[in-house]
Every structure is written in C-alpha cells, then in structure tokens.
C-alpha cells in the first residue's frame, strides 16, 4: 500500500495526514478526521449524501480520491454554521421539515449551498431558458433540476424545495 502525506483545510482547520492512495475524501473525512457529517449512501456518486464543498464547489466526496486533492479547502456540513448561528439553509430545512431520517441531509445542505452559489454565478441548468433571469429567486423548476443529484428516500422533497426557496430569498 502506498501512503501519501497530504494537507487539507477542512472547515478552516489545516489537517495534515498520510492517506492510503485508495482512500476517498469521504472516507478520510469520516474515518480519519472524525467528521461523520458527510454520509455514505452509495459510494458511487449516485445519491449525493456525501456532498461537500471542495474548493468552493459541491462534489461527491465518495468519488474524489483524497490524494488527488492535496492542499484543497473542504467545507462539510459541520462547517456550514457560524458557531451556534446556523446557516440560513440549515434553518430553513428545520423550519420547512426538509428531512426525515436525516441521512441525506448533510449532502442536501452542502449541495444547496453550492447550488445557490452556482446560480449566483449565472450557471445555467437543463431547464434554464435562453431568456431566463437567474436573478435573486430561482424558480421551483430550477431548484428541482439543480438538486437532482441528492436522493431522499424518505421523500422530503417538498420540504427541501420549500427550504431552499426560503433560504434563497
């Protein structure tokens, strides 16, 4: 086995550790750094439960090899709140009951935060029309399409949609 030393900045803290080249970023977060917020739902990029912000962008951490992200800045669900002050998306998920079992929730939250940023940058989605204004308040269809990579088997989608709308205001 080859181990490589890497440095990651996770939720603002610099973490230095030697990792197995085979280790996913997800497993490093969960098994090595004690950050079990990001979840393993499929381990193949098909459910989104492992979503974190990697250098500011939402990604499936199960498919990211930790060694390939030397020096990266990672934000997990544990890093979304400012101390006890929850991120607006977190608050809205509680208020709109955007989860039930909670297992997909960390991925939904990180995905939503990343997605709102993508909207802000004017990135289109598959449902964006040529003349659509991706301004302040995204349409329901925009949110639905952009959150397609985060499965929720409890079926909390109605609450998730409402929560993201609320948080985007």
């Amino acid at each position: 086995m080859e181990a490589i030393e890497i440095v990651l900045t996770v939720n603002g803290d610099e973490r230095r550790l030697a990792v197995d080249t085979r280790a996913s970023l997800l497993d490093v977060l969960r098994e090595r750094l004690g950050l079990t917020g990001a979840k393993k739902g499929c381990d193949h990029g098909q459910c989104g439960a492992c979503t974190v912000l990697l250098d500011g962008r939402r990604v499936n951490s199960c498919l990211a090899l930790a060694v390939a992200h030397q020096g990266a800045e990672v934000i997990t669900v544990e890093g979304l709140a400012d101390g006890d002050d929850l991120h607006p998306v977190q608050r809205a998920f509680i208020e709109e009951d955007g989860f039930q079992c909670g297992y997909c929730t960390p991925g939904q939250l990180c995905s939503a935060v990343g997605m709102l940023d993508e909207l802000k940058q004017g990135w289109p989605s598959a449902v964006t029309g040529d003349d659509d204004d991706l301004g302040d308040e995204p349409s329901d269809d925009e949110i639905r399409e952009r959150m397609n990579g985060n499965l929720c088997r409890c079926g909390a989608y109605a609450g998730i949609l409402a929560a993201i709308k609320e948080a985007s205001r």
């Binding site: 990029g45 939402r58 499936n60 989605s125 397609n148």
Partner: peptide, 11 residues
C-alpha cells in the same frame, strides 16, 4: 447539463 448531477459535473 442533461448529464449526471451538479456535483458530478463539478468533478
């Protein structure tokens, strides 16, 4: 944009 998810497209 018809392919995969936002997370996957970012990687």
């Amino acid at each position: 944009l018809a392919g995969a998810s936002g997370q996957l497209r970012n990687l």
